[in-house]
Structures are given as structure tokens and as C-alpha cells.
């Protein structure tokens, strides 16, 4: 069974929000339909499904790994060459802080970049159904389904909400 998508195009946000409501009322599962916009509307403006994300974990894990490595690097260096300077202990935290800070930042940034690649679903190799008018302010409501029998229901909801055009893929 192949996956199908249809895209309803709207010029105004109100009918697009009505279409989203209609799809929920018609029994379409959350996550099977989404709204496409060229502008970031305030969250929840279309009553859309809000997926969970784990983006904050990536910089946190990266920073922890960077910090751990930096502690190891600075401590190992100073223990390998134990020279007492200014009467301070061999492992002086203030002398180690600079490298610890920089390595924490470095690993944090790298992990954030990696996290974004995962969490943004980028690169999106199969962007699916799309219309270039979306970057001109139009709003798309896209529905994806495995069951062909629901296509007519989805079209009906989109038409009822006032979709100006419906595209199939």
C-alpha cells in the first residue's frame, strides 16, 4: 500500500484553521496532517498538533562531553608534567577553567548542529507535496494517508473549509 498526500491551499489563515479543525472532527489521526506556511504563525494558531522534541538534550549532552574531555585533558597534561608554579597545587582549577570553558562551548555547538540535523528532519530528502505559493504567504494543509478510502473525506473537509486549490501526490 503506497502513501498518498493531498495539499489544500488557502490564502487566508482562518479557513486553514477551519480545515485543521474539520480534519480532527472527521477522525483523522494527529500527526497525519500538518500546516505549511512561509511565515512563522504563533504556535497553536491553527490548532495544530505539537510534536515533542529533544532539541535541548543535544547541547546539554555535548556540553557535558566537552566538559568531561576538558577536565581529562587539562588534568592529564598537568599530571604528566607536574611543575609547581607560584606555589599553587598541580591541579589548579582556575588555571584549567579557560580550556574547560572553551571545550565545553566547542562540544556544545557541535552537538547543537548535529541535534538540529536530526530534530529539524533536515535534510528532508522527500519533502512531499508542496506549492511555491506557500513562500508567498499562502497556507497549505497537507494530509498523508495509507488508506485510499479517506481521500474523499479529506477533500470534502478541505473544500468545505474553502480551499482554493487541492493538489494530489
Amino acid at each position: 500500500m503506497s502513501t498518498q498526500s493531498i495539499l489544500g491551499l488557502f490564502q487566508q489563515p482562518e479557513p486553514a484553521a477551519d480545515a485543521m479543525d474539520g480534519l480532527k472532527e472527521a477522525g483523522f489521526e494527529l500527526g497525519t496532517f500538518d500546516v505549511l506556511t512561509g511565515t512563522p504563525y504563533p504556535e497553536g494558531a491553527f490548532g495544530e498538533y505539537v510534536p515533542q522534541h529533544r532539541l535541548f538534550r543535544f547541547p546539554a549532552f555535548g556540553a557535558i562531553i566537552g566538559f568531561t574531555l576538558s577536565v581529562f585533558l587539562t588534568a592529564a597534561t598537568q599530571l604528566a608534567y607536574p611543575i609547581v608554579t607560584g606555589g599553587k597545587p598541580i591541579l589548579s582549577i582556575f588555571a584549567m577553567l579557560i580550556i574547560m570553558y572553551e571545550m565545553t562551548m566547542l562540544a556544545g555547538v557541535i552537538a547543537t548542529v548535529v541535534g538540529i540535523i536530526f530534530e529539524s528532519r533536515l535534510p528532508n530528502m522527500k519533502p512531499g507535496i508542496y506549492d511555491t505559493r506557500i513562500t508567498e504567504g499562502w497556507i497549505g494543509v497537507v494530509i498523508t494517508f495509507d488508506d485510499d478510502s479517506k481521500v474523499a473525506d479529506a477533500e470534502s473537509v478541505l473544500n468545505k473549509a474553502g480551499a482554493l486549490e487541492i493538489k494530489h501526490a
Binding site: D34, V35, L36, T37, G38, P40, Y41, E43, F46, E48, Y49, V50, P51, H53, L55, F56, P59, M105, G108, V109, T112, I116, E119, S120, R121, L122, P123, N124, M125, K126, P127, G128, Y130, I134, T135, G140
Partner: peptide, 24 residues
């Protein structure tokens, strides 16, 4: 563009990564 189509999930992560990279 890496397949950007403007889904809600993409906009949400965009806001977050601007915040994260800005802080960094």
C-alpha cells in the same frame, strides 16, 4: 534549503536553534 517546506515542526525548531546559537 534542505527540503524546507515550512511545517510547524520546522518553524518550532528554527526558533529554538536561533535561541541556542544566539546564546552560544
Amino acid at each position: 534549503a534542505r527540503g524546507w517546506v515550512g511545517t510547524d515542526s520546522q518553524w518550532r525548531t528554527l526558533r529554538m536553534r536561533i535561541g541556542m546559537f544566539g546564546t552560544f
